[in-house]
Amino acid sequence: MSVLEGKELRIVGFLCNWCSYGGADTAGVGRFSQPTDLRIVRVPCSGRINPLFIMKALLSGADGVLVSGCHPRDCHYAEGNYYARRRLEVLKGLLPTLGIDPRRFEYTWVSASEGQRWQHVVDTFTQQVHTLGPAKRLPDAPELAALAARLEPLRN
């Protein structure tokens, strides 16, 4: 199963359950049409997002990563998004040093009521990633990857 070749890019979203995931739901309920590239991972809080999840995605072949949490002051857990803001900003600064275009990663705040805003965020970010095109993939270790695939059934 591959991405719709040439049409879609691989965009991973990490959304907090209380605000942004709800905002994405609200956008759905409002039938606010959006590009289909984004796949959303639901987490309880933006504070749960280890910046390394984003790196994992980017190094594993994601063309873009989008994080969204509750607006500052609105965090369901009071403080999670404040920590997230610092950590994500620092991560964004590291990307160019790794040779990754920092525009491949954005973080923002969308509340559960902001369906339209969510649509705008997804539209804008998807467009931004499409402008950058597919990300360069790092080489896997081919022979070991193949071995790992063969061993997969034995793991259970």
């Binding site: 199963m1 991405v3 719709l4 049409k7 879609e8 994405a24 739901d25 956008a27 759905g28 309920v29 039938r31 606010f32 049409s33 959006q34 590009p35 289909t36 796949r39 959303i40 649509q119």
Partner: peptide, 21 residues
């Protein structure tokens, strides 16, 4: 539904996305 069928009209893309989810 909220994240696929209600926000996109392209059935191929939606079906593919649904399967990935």
């Amino acid at each position: 539904r909220e994240h696929v069928s209600w926000i996109g009209k392209n059935k191929d893309a939606n079906t593919n996305k649904a399967a990935e989810l």
